[in-house]
């Protein structure tokens, strides 16, 4: 599951994330993070047998958690299937099928934004 974690200033100094990893069987990938002493947010992808418990733990510790359904969206009207984005994706989340249609794999996407900034018709959007 992918979710934004919202850190209030009071939590920033706590070691919540490392405690989460120590105590629960979770796999955890930080996709984006912007945290300062004034608080901030972090986009994570969390999975594993104790992911649910881990999420409950984060919430108990005061981290507000907003699951996101889609990381990346393609406007089918604007997309010309030119494929400019394909070679820029660091995780191969963008593919071209046999009919030369471009597909984005939301599960693989890490929201890096390379494709959005390179698209000639601005057809790709990353969810905030």
């Amino acid at each position: 599951m992918k979710a934004w974690l919202n850190f209030s200033p009071s939590i920033v100094s706590k070691t919540v994330i490392s405690d989460l990893i120590k105590h629960y069987d979770v796999s955890f990938n930080i996709l984006r993070a912007d945290i300062t002493p004034k608080g901030g947010k972090m986009l994570i992808d969390i999975s594993g047998s104790e992911a649910e418990k881990g999420i409950q733990y984060l919430e108990k510790e005061g981290i507000q958690l907003n699951p996101i359904k889609k990381v990346v969206k393609k406007d089918e009207e604007k997309c010309m299937d030119c494929g400019e984005c394909v070679s820029l994706c660091p995780v191969e989340a963008i593919t071209i099928d046999e009919e030369w249609t471009v597909h984005l794999d939301d599960q693989k996407c890490i929201g890096c934004g390379f494709c959005t900034s390179s698209c000639p018709t601005k057809a790709i959007k990353i969810a905030d």
Partner: peptide, 14 residues
Amino acid sequence: EVQTSPLSSLKKAL
């Protein structure tokens, strides 16, 4: 091994 990008739409060309 590196990835390639077509830039011209092969779907549309077809």
